[in-house]
Computed example of a mutant assay.
Amino acid sequence: MATSRANPGPRAAAANRRSLIDAARALFDERGVEVPLVEIARRAGVGQGVLYRHFPDRASLVFAVFDENMTQLESLAQEHGPLPLRRLGHEISHRVQGIAPLMSFATSTPDDPRLGALEGRMRVLLEQSRDSAHKAGHLRSEVTIEDLLLAISMLAALAYTVPPDQRESRVEHAWELISRGLESP
C-alpha cells in the first residue's frame, strides 16, 4: 500500500521561496546566470510551476538574490550602526563573490526599477559609512558616494572574472588596495 504525502499548499510558500533563492545562488555561481530554470527548481526540490509562481522570469529570481543580500547588509547596519567602510567593503565583497555571475546580468538592464531601488539602498548604507568615516578622520574628505560605488563595481567585476576558487583572495587583495587610496593620509 502506497502512502501519500499531504500537500502542504500555501504553508510551504516561504520555505519554497527560500529553497529557490538558495538553489539559484548556488547554481548561478557554479554555472552562470543562464543555467536552465528547471535545474534551479530541481535543486530546490520544487516543480517548475512553483518556481514560476514565485519568480515569473529569470530577472525576478536574480533580483531576489540581490535583494536578500541587501537586506542582510541593512540588518548589519541596523544592528551595529554605520559599518566602518572596511567592514562594509568586506561584507559587500563576500556577498559579491557568491553572486558574481549575476552582476553583468543585472547591470545589462540599467533602466530596470529594481536595479535603481537596490542602488538607492546601497547609497544609503554607503552614505552612513562614509559620513562616519569622515567624522572619525579615517577617510579622505574628497571621497564621494560615486567613488565608493565605483570601487564596489570594480570589486564585482573582478569577482565575476576570476575562477571561484580564487575569488576570495583576489577580492580581498583588491579591497586592500582600494582602501589604501580612500583612507586619510
Rank of each mutant, 00 (worst) to 15 (best):
R31C: 00
L61W: 15
A41Q: 14
E30I: 02
P56S: 08
V35L: 07
G49H: 03
H54V: 03
F66I: 06
V62F: 12
F63Y: 15
E39C: 04
E68C: 06
D29C: 07
D57W: 06
V35N: 09
L51H: 05
H54N: 12
R31F: 10
P56Y: 01
R53F: 10
G47C: 03
V38L: 07
V62I: 07
S60G: 11
E39W: 02
F55L: 08
A44R: 05
N69S: 14
A44G: 06
E68R: 10
P36R: 14
G45S: 13
G47A: 10
I40K: 00
V50Q: 09
V38C: 14
F63H: 13
Y52G: 01
D57C: 02
R31S: 02
R58F: 15
V46M: 06
F66L: 02
M70K: 14
P36T: 07
V50F: 05
A64V: 05
V46F: 15
A44L: 04
E34P: 08
R58C: 10
I40Q: 01
L61M: 14
E34M: 13
L61S: 12
I40A: 02
H54E: 01
R53K: 08
V38D: 07
L51P: 01
H54T: 02
F66Y: 11
E39A: 07
E34K: 13
